[in-house]
Design a protein around this nucleic acid. Structure first.
Lengths: 144, 144
DNA sequence: AACCAATCAGACGCTAATGTCCTAATTTAG
DNA sequence: CTAAATTAGGACATTAGCGTCTGATTGGTT
């Protein structure tokens, strides 16, 4: 469903989004807080920087930060550069000819399944995630 | 989403279901028709036999056949013995404490996504797939 | 200018998934 | 009974994902 790399990326970006600061955030800190191996996380964040999802800054006080407004970054944006999402477009049964008109036995079933998955990833933004968290915190606070 | 092994299993079982015969079906034939590497497919089918999804028969005229009525075999039954579907139950962000009450920022989003996925796999049977195919064949025939 | 903090880039190793091959064990045909 | 067909099972090879390490580069601090 989600590769290890993709999960690590989600962990890191959710952490950064939730932190909310506009300053650059170091790899060590993110790794520490999310439990992702630091060196490997660095590779992942570099890829996301190349994909323009993050901005990076070398040197003292440098690190990574989210390149766009939180409501303009979807979960799909984060996972897409790291995994082969285009797999979804190919026929599960491996038939060359498989589309809405001429469909393999699994075409419609699989299109529905993958459509729901991709749709959810595309419609959920980091803003949604950050908002939810704050709401949950508030609820917790009220319950105390 | 779906591992290579799982995809191969789907290809093979859909082929067998569609063929509709109650006789044992040889690995070579299935491999030929589905484009799956024969030796690897053999391993996969053996696993499904151990999981009671298939029955196997050695010797001349032997092979594999589906062990239950087609409407009692879901796509989930086919994929489950081959992949670690239990991954879905774990928190995406890796938090130890994450459930409906105390949720991580992604809990609800991810629960919805994986729920749709697993639900589709569990509610689709080989009978559905075989039926669809026959219907599609009929449509093709009419169009000629 | 010298130094330090941090990313960048590439090489390297480990592990699991994928794929191949060979030898048994089993069943049927003749 | 023998030979052929076929799965069962294990050993092995290949590949890709995951993870580590080292040196280079960049930018700020002193």
């Amino acid at each position: 469903m989600l590769t290890q790399t993709g999960e690590y990326a989600l962990r890191a970006l959710v952490y950064m989004a939730r932190k909310g600061s506009d300053a650059y955030c170091g790899v060590k800190e993110i790794a520490q807080e999310t439990g992702v191996p630091a060196n490997y996380l660095a590779k992942i964040l570099q890829q996301l920087a190349r994909a323009k999802v993050l901005e990076s800054q070398k040197g003292f006080g440098g690190g990574f930060k989210i390149a766009r407004r939180l409501d303009r970054v979807t979960l799909f944006d984060i996972i897409d550069p790291l995994e082969r999402i285009d797999k979804f477009k190919q026929c599960v049964l491996g038939q060359r000819l498989c589309n809405d008109q001429v469909a393999c036995p699994l075409h419609h079933t699989w299109k529905a399944i993958s459509g729901q998955y991709l749709g959810s990833l595309r419609s959920t933004t980091l803003q949604d995630v950050a908002d939810f968290r704050r709401h949950a915190d508030a609820v917790e606070h009220v319950e105390e």
